[in-house]
Nucleic acid binder design. Structure first.
Lengths: 115, 115
DNA sequence: TCATAATATATGATTATCCGTATATTAATA
DNA sequence: TATTAATATACGGATAATCATATATTATGA
């Protein structure tokens, strides 16, 4: 991942808020992000795929769910930047509403915590 | 400036390296940035105008030169992010070459340092 | 006032991005 | 095996970004 690719990931509202949610929640499946953001599944899925291709996110399938998280193998220069991303958006209504919807979801999939 | 606008500024090679140069050098005129980046003057000028409109940069005319610098009135959330931008690019050849060309320029304009 | 240097902007073409919709794929379950 | 849920991808259209080129603007100095 180049610095420009890193910043491209964050230069779109949908992607930025997904990253912030993943930063805060650790690991979310596509349907959780879709509900939280109140956007269509293909839209979320396309944005997640882009960030996976750039190397910002990694995915792991658990049964019928695919969980996304911030990559565990990020370049060093990106880590301090990423730590300040959540801070930049957590006050916004869009982010707070997304968090609300996430925590009010019913049927959230169980996470396997041991990996 | 919204977070997305902030990241948009940094999601293009030309803009990212201009920001990094301004971070390192403090204040540069358009012709210095044009020489440093080895790109056309209108191209540099357009990118600088975009970042000025978003509020990331501010300009100040000194005679025939227009100097750009990182805005002195940035939102709080952007400051720690900006501090790590230079770190992300300073190792790259593009950035090192730009610095080389900047310091090897002849006829660099004098800066008024008292403002 | 004329010429020049520095900078900004306009124009049109090309390319990239983003989205809705439809459909394909994968896994679970009846 | 048929169905359903979750996810990914393909397609086409709309919008936005980017660029090279040409030209306008502003300031300086002869």
């Amino acid at each position: 991942m180049t610095p420009v690719q890193f910043f491209k990931c964050l230069s779109d509202d949908t992607r930025l808020h997904c990253v912030a949610l993943l930063q805060k929640e650790g690991k979310l499946c596509v349907c959780e992000l879709t509900s939280a953001m109140a956007l269509s599944q293909p839209k979320i899925s396309r944005h997640l795929a882009l960030m996976r291709q750039y190397g910002l996110l990694q995915d792991s399938r658990e049964g019928q769910w695919v969980f996304y998280q911030i990559s565990t193998a990020l370049p060093d220069w990106s880590k301090p930047l990423l730590e300040n991303v959540l801070n930049a958006v957590e006050q916004s209504d869009v982010f707070k509403n997304a968090q609300q919807r996430l925590h009010h979801m019913d049927n959230r999939p169980e996470k396997v915590l041991c990996d």
